[in-house]
């Protein structure tokens, strides 16, 4: 039975993956150059714009997690919840026990991932709207938990004055200088680094056997079971990966903004993460990144309409759904390939 999947995957991957691979490799190299060389050189003197880009980078990092759950065919509205969990883990460890941010960051991701696996195991048995409903409730539940956390989460007053990331010393040498809240540049590099790492990881994953397994879950779980795929294991895996990204993203924002409140991530944020993925295009790895950068930057540039941001998000979502159901990237691919992009 296992042989059947192994035979099928490389064959399909070879056929569709050839052009896809080079497209994505090219795009990724360009992306890295732009992010690590182009942006600092161009905007290095504009701290405000760097802050905006940092926001967009980490938001797209978190949305990338949502993209993974989309690839197993689940609509995840709990990403805000796990970002909140990650944020609180970092905030509590850093303020109460003085643990370095560099330890907290992966640890927050890990806590979120474990929690995600525990909650996800029963919850992922649900499908479609049922899963969406439960995850939506979960976002609200975690917010209430933070609000009622007593001394641990400090309730509605939140945790403030979280120290910025400190120095890293390796063999007596200073590898990473201490961060200060006045200079956004180190944060930017950290955010860009996280995004690049996340992107490579998800890209490798979606081209590996695991990626094909995930997509097979989206198309038909029963069929996947019948050819010997342990459906429960893989979907929990995908979900906790997604939660890991939410947790680290949430931890980053705590260090970046130096505070966290129960209302830092609400249902609206969970919905926004979905919107980023959707606007860029669910079938493309770069979808969440294109979506997040486009929306975050355009809203920062258009100050006048910021009061109506959420309203425009809603209208945009409906408009996209009706006119561009496969996302912005589907436009480009269609023009270059001269054919409609494949569904899967």
């Amino acid at each position: 039975m296992d042989q059947a999947t192994d035979n099928r995957c490389p064959a399909t991957a070879g056929e569709a993956g050839g052009s896809l691979f080079s497209w994505q490799a090219l795009g990724f190299t360009g992306f890295l150059l732009l992010v690590f060389v182009g942006v600092p050189v161009t905007f290095g003197r504009l701290p405000y714009f760097i802050t905006v880009l940092t926001n967009a980078a980490v938001l797209s990092f978190i949305s990338l997690g949502v993209w993974i759950t989309f690839s197993i065919g689940r609509m995840n509205l709990a990403q805000g919840a796990f970002a909140l969990v990650g944020g609180y883990v970092t905030a509590i460890l850093a303020t109460r026990y003085g643990i370095s941010f560099w330890v907290c960051l992966p640890l927050s991701g890990l806590v979120s991932a474990v929690l995600g696996a525990l909650i996800g195991w029963p919850m992922l048995r649900l499908k479609g709207v049922y899963f969406a409903m439960t995850t939506l409730s979960l976002t609200e539940a975690i917010r209430l938990l933070a609000l009622n956390g007593g001394d641990v989460t400090k309730g509605a007053t939140g945790i403030v004055n979280v120290p910025p990331p400190g120095t890293i010393w390796i063999f007596g040498r200073m590898v990473v200088p201490p961060f200060s809240s006045a200079d956004p540049m180190p944060y930017y590099f950290l955010a860009a680094g996280m995004l690049a790492l996340g992107l490579v990881a998800v890209w490798r994953l979606s081209n590996s056997r695991l990626g094909w397994v995930f997509r097979s879950l989206r198309q038909n779980e029963d069929l996947a079971t019948s050819i010997g795929i342990n459906v429960a294991k893989y979907r929990v895996m995908a979900f906790s990966l997604c939660c890991f990204m939410a947790g680290t993203g949430g931890a980053f924002f705590v260090a970046f903004q130096q505070n966290i409140y129960p209302s830092t991530y609400t249902v609206a944020d969970s919905v926004n993460f979905l919107l980023y993925c959707f606007l860029g295009g669910l079938d493309y790895l770069f979808g969440p990144i294109v979506g997040a950068f486009l929306l975050v930057i355009s809203f920062e540039l258009l100050h006048a309409i910021q009061d109506y941001q959420a309203l425009i998000y809603g209208a945009l979502m409906i408009f996209c759904m009706l006119c561009l159901p496969n996302g912005i990237l589907s436009l480009r691919l269609r023009r270059f390939d001269g054919r409609r992009n494949p569904k899967a």
Binding site: G314, M317, I318, M321
Partner: peptide, 8 residues
């Protein structure tokens, strides 16, 4: 997603 958009 469309339904979520209408809610928003």
């Amino acid at each position: 997603l469309l339904a979520v958009g209408t809610a928003l």
